[in-house]
C-alpha cells in the first residue's frame, strides 16, 4: 500500500517536474519544433552540413550580442545601442590594429572601450535613474553619428600588414568544418551561463531585476550591480565587434550593425527573457537566437521575399511576449 502510493507519488512528481522543465524552457521546445518543421519541409537542403554550419555562423554575432541584451533585460533595462556600439568599437579595433600593427593591442583597446561605454550607460541608468530605453536611445544615436563623422559615412578596412592574421581570427575553420565564430559564440554562452547561475554578480543581477527595493534593503549596492551588468554587456559587444570586423575584414560606419538591437531583443525574448526583469536564461537566449536563425534560413529556402523577413521577425517578438503573458497568468 505504502509502496504503491510512493510509486504513484514519484510518477506524478516526475510528470510535474517534466511540466516545470518544459514551462521553464519554452525556448528549447520552440527551437525543436521549428527544427522538426524545417526538416519536414525542406529535409535534404535544410539538413545538409553546409546549411547547418551556415545557420550557426550567420547567427554567432547576434547570438553573442543577445547575451549582452539578456543580462541587461534581466536587470529590468534594455539596450538599444548594441548595434551602433559594435560599430564604434569595431572601428576602434581596426584603427588601433592598423596604426600599431598589433592585433592584441587593437582587441584590448576595443574591450576596454566596450567596458567604459557600458559602465557609462549603466551609471546613467543606475545613479541618475534615467530609463534605460532613453539612455540607450541617446547613445545609439551618438555612437552611430560619431562613427559616421569619423569615417565620413564610409568604412574602414584592415591594413595589408596584419590582414592575414586578423582575418583568420574569425574565418579559420576548426577541423576544416567548424568556423571559429561558432566556437566563440559557444564559449561566450558557457561563460555567461556560469556568470548568471554560479556567481554572486549573476545572482544579484536577477535579484535587482526581480525586486530592486528588496535587493537594496538586503544590504546590496544595487547601483553597482547595474553598472557591472552594463559593463559586462559592453565587453560582450566588444567581443562581437572584434569577431565581426575580423569576419568581414572591415566595418562600415553606416551599414554595419543595422537593426542588430532588434535581432538581439528578439532572441532574448523568444528565449523566454521577461521584459519586466528578473527572469531569463542563457540556454533560452541561445535557443532563441537559433530559432530565429532557422526561421530566417527557411524563409530564404522557401523563397519568401527578403523585404518581408522583417515583418515576420516583428510578429515573432510580439507572439513570444504574448505567449509569456498567457503562460505567466496561470
Amino acid at each position: 500500500m505504502n509502496e504503491a502510493t510512493s510509486t504513484a507519488d514519484r510518477k506524478s512528481r516526475g510528470r510535474s517536474d517534466l511540466k516545470k522543465l518544459l514551462a521553464k524552457n519554452t525556448a528549447v521546445v520552440a527551437f525543436i519544433l521549428v527544427f522538426v518543421v524545417s526538416v519536414a519541409l525542406k529535409g535534404s537542403v535544410f539538413f545538409s552540413t553546409m546549411n547547418i554550419v551556415n545557420i550557426l555562423r550567420n547567427n554567432s554575432i547576434i547570438g553573442i550580442i543577445a547575451l549582452a541584451m539578456t543580462l541587461i533585460i534581466i536587470t529590468g533595462g534594455i539596450d538599444l545601442s548594441v548595434g551602433s556600439q559594435m560599430v564604434i568599437i569595431g572601428i576602434t579595433v581596426l584603427a588601433v590594429t592598423n596604426a600599431t600593427g598589433s592585433i592584441v593591442l587593437g582587441a584590448l583597446t576595443g574591450m576596454v572601450l566596450g567596458v567604459v561605454l557600458g559602465a557609462g550607460a549603466g551609471s546613467l541608468v543606475a545613479k541618475f535613474k534615467i530609463p534605460a530605453f532613453i539612455v540607450t536611445l541617446g547613445t545609439m544615436g551618438i555612437y552611430r553619428a560619431v562613427s559616421q563623422y569619423l569615417l565620413n559615412g564610409g568604412g574602414i578596412m584592415i591594413g595589408a600588414d596584419p590582414m592575414d592574421n586578423f582575418v583568420r581570427l574569425a574565418n579559420y575553420d576548426l577541423f576544416g568544418v567548424v568556423p571559429m565564430t561558432i566556437i566563440y559564440w559557444l564559449l561566450a554562452c558557457a561563460a555567461i551561463h556560469v556568470l548568471a547561475t554560479r556567481t554572486q554578480t549573476g545572482r544579484y543581477i536577477y535579484s535587482v531585476g526581480s525586486n530592486e527595493k528588496a535587493t537594496l534593503l538586503s544590504g546590496i549596492n544595487t547601483d553597482r550591480v547595474k553598472i557591472v551588468a552594463y559593463s559586462i554587456a559592453g565587453l560582450l559587444v566588444a567581443f562581437a565587434a572584434i569577431i565581426e570586423s575580423s569576419r568581414l575584414g572591415s566595418i562600415n560606419s553606416s551599414s554595419s550593425g543595422a537593426s542588430y538591437e532588434m535581432d538581439a531583443i528578439a532572441a532574448a525574448v523568444v528565449g523566454g527573457t521577461s521584459m519586466s526583469g528578473g527572469k531569463g536564461t542563457i540556454l533560452g537566449t541561445f535557443c532563441g537566437a537559433l530559432t530565429l536563425g532557422v526561421i530566417n534560413n527557411m524563409m530564404t529556402l522557401l523563397g519568401v521575399p527578403p523585404f518581408l523577413v522583417g515583418a515576420v521577425k516583428g510578429a515573432i517578438i510580439i507572439c513570444a511576449v504574448l505567449l509569456q503573458k498567457v503562460l505567466g497568468d496561470k
Partner: peptide, 15 residues
C-alpha cells in the same frame, strides 16, 4: 532590517 510591506520591500519574487 526587516522592512514593512513584505511584498514590495522584502520578497524577491523570481528567486
Amino acid at each position: 532590517y526587516v522592512p514593512r510591506n513584505r511584498k514590495e520591500n522584502g520578497i524577491i519574487r523570481d528567486l
